[in-house]
Amino acid sequence: MIDLLSSPLMQRALLAALLVGATAPIVGTYLVQRRLALLGDGIGHIALTGVAAGWLAGSLAGLSTPESLALPGAVVVSVLGAVGIEWVRARGRITGDVAMAILFYGGIAGGVLLIKIAGGTSANLMNYLFGSIATVSGADLLWTAALSGLVLLVGLGLRPLLFAVSHDEEFARASGLPVQLLTSTLAALAALTVTVSMRVVGLLLVSALMIVPVATAQVVTRSFSRTMALASLIGAVVSVVGLGVTYWYDLPPGATIVVLAIALYAVTTTVQQRRRRPDPTADPHPDLRDDVRLAGEA
C-alpha cells in the first residue's frame, strides 16, 4: 500500500482518477434524466476527430511533439460537436438517435482520416481510445484538475436550472428560462467531461463512467440530489479502486474501472431486488381514497 502511494506516477494517476471519477457522474446524472445516456458515447467518438485534428495542427505548426495539441484539439472539437448536435436536435431537424449515429460514425472516420494525413497511424489513437493513465504527466494532471473544476463549478452551481431543464424542458421554457443556453451548457459540460476522462478510461469507455454510477445510485436513492451525490461517490471509489488493482495486477486501468462499476451495479440491483421482494398482495397506494362506494359498504 505504501509503495502504491510513494510512486509519483501512481500519485498523479490516482489523483486524476479521483477527479474524473467524481466529476463524470455529476454530468451523467443530467444526461440520464434527459434520456441522453448515449450522448457521452457520441461525444467520445467525435473527440477522436479532435485528437487527430490537434495532432494535425501540431505537425502543420512544426511542433517537435505534435501530440501535445491532441487534448486541446479534443476539447475544441468535442465541445463544438456537442453544442452543434444539441442545436440541431432542438430544432427538430433530426431525431436524437440519428444525430447520435452520425456522430459515432463521423467521429471515428474523421479521426482515422486526419491522423493519417497528420503523418501518424491509427495505432497512435489507441491510447486515446482505451486510455493511458499510466502516462499521466504533471501537465496532464493540471489540465484534468482545471477542467474537472470547471465542470464541477458549472454542473453544481447551476444545479437548480440544469435540473429544471433536464426534468421538464417544456415547463422550463414556459418559465422563461434560457432553455437553449442551458442545454448547450450541458452538452458542453458533457464534452469537457469526455475529454478530461479520455486519459483515464479512454474514449470508448468514457460514457460508462458518466452513466453506470448513476444507474447504480438510482437503484437505492429516491431524490435527484442524493442520486447525484451517491453517483459521484461511486464514480470516485470505483476509479480509485480500479486503478489501484492495476498496480498489483497487470490489467488495463480503463477497462478495470468500468468492469468494477458494472459489477457494483449488478450487485446493487440484485441486493435491492431481494430486499424489496415484491409482495403481490400489498396495495401499492394504501392511502388513496376510494371514490366509488359499493352497495352494502358503510
Binding site: 446524472t29 434520456r35 447551476l158 436550472l161 415547463f171 422550463a172 418559465s175 435527484f224
Partner: peptide, 24 residues
C-alpha cells in the same frame, strides 16, 4: 412519469420557483 433519475415532489415543485433573474 418516466423511469429516469428519481426526483421528489419537493424537488419538482421547487423548479417552479425559477424564472429569469430568480435562478436560485
Amino acid at each position: 412519469a418516466h423511469t429516469g433519475v428519481p426526483a421528489t415532489a419537493l424537488e419538482v415543485v421547487r423548479a417552479g420557483l425559477l424564472s429569469p433573474g430568480h435562478w436560485r
